[in-house]
């Protein structure tokens, strides 16, 4: 990977923009997929009401907070663009080499495209989901003074999720089929990302593992910060996010460089 100069940055902003516009074409589809979000939110609103009652808590969250927590984790999970399948295809077919003769960084190109698409998906999921959560469980009390930190957390979470998917997609340099690995990633996200329940509520062993993986920092932690802001969690999250961003970016760069060398030698 190469560093980006200020002037060159504009192209990535434009890529994000066009990817955003490209997705707006499918806005109706995105609203349709939000129906799935409503469905799970509905089921869990019933579940938390029954299990927790008016005063019960899980890891310090009452039933309303639990539902809003899930809205945010699921919004992140359901809004992850499908672009990595494209990366996989390009890598497998060797088309990636054709992209490398354009004056942009392949990784940043896809990161920009990812951000643009994520924004559209997240906006639809969040608006539909929030309306539903509001109607069934009532409003969420947000600590607006700390909202900047929360946004930073979400931004870093997005980079981590991108890098994780990108690295899995790059496996296509060496493997015939990457879908099984995406499937595994999906299941791991469900558990170690704490999609339903904050990982703090997990039994000791599971919690330990989730603390060692990036997924906690890109799903559970930022979602929890919105519903229950806490400085110690914030610092923990930011530290974890920064470490993982650096590690994953380095991993992606190394995998990419090694893989691309093969393509340059063996062709597509």
């Amino acid at each position: 990977m190469q560093l980006v100069s200020g002037g060159a940055l504009r192209k990535y902003v434009r890529i994000a923009e066009i990817s955003f516009t490209n997705r707006v074409v499918y806005l109706a589809d995105h609203f349709a997929s939000s129906i799935f979000l409503i469905l799970i939110l509905f089921i869990f609103s019933q579940l938390w009401k029954t299990v927790l009652g008016p005063s019960g808590e899980i890891a310090g969250l009452d039933s309303t907070a639990m539902l809003w927590y899930m809205l945010f984790t699921e919004t992140i999970a359901l809004s992850i663009p499908r672009a990595h399948y494209l990366v996989s295809e390009e890598v497998k077919s060797g088309d990636v080499a054709y992209k490398l003769i354009r004056p942009y960084s392949y990784i940043l190109y896809y990161f920009a495209a990812y951000c643009g698409e994520f924004a559209v998906r997240a906006a639809t999921n969040l608006s539909v989901g929030a309306a539903f959560a509001y109607l069934t469980m009532g409003p969420l009390t947000v600590n607006w003074g700390k909202f900047g930190w929360v946004l930073l957390g979400f931004a870093l979470a997005t980079s981590i999720n991108f890098l994780v998917c990108f690295c899995v997609a790059l496996l296509a340099f060496w493997l015939e089929e990457t879908r099984p690995y995406f499937w595994i990633l999906n299941k791991m996200t469900f558990i170690f990302g704490g999609l339903l329940v904050p990982v703090e509520a997990y039994p000791e062993g599971l919690r330990r593992i989730s603390y060692l993986l990036p997924l906690r920092y890109s799903f559970s932690a930022p979602a929890r910060l919105v519903v229950d802001f806490d400085y110690s969690l914030l610092w923990q999250m930011l530290a974890g996010q920064l470490v993982w961003t650096v590690l994953l970016a380095a991993l992606a760069a190394v995998m990419f460089r090694k893989g691309v060398r093969r393509v340059h030698v063996h062709g597509g």
Binding site: R10, K11, R14, R102, P103
Partner: peptide, 17 residues
Amino acid sequence: YHLPALDSFRLLGSIYE
């Protein structure tokens, strides 16, 4: 693929600075 060529042209304009 899904956008008018003009959008791609503008994007390429930025990509080629």
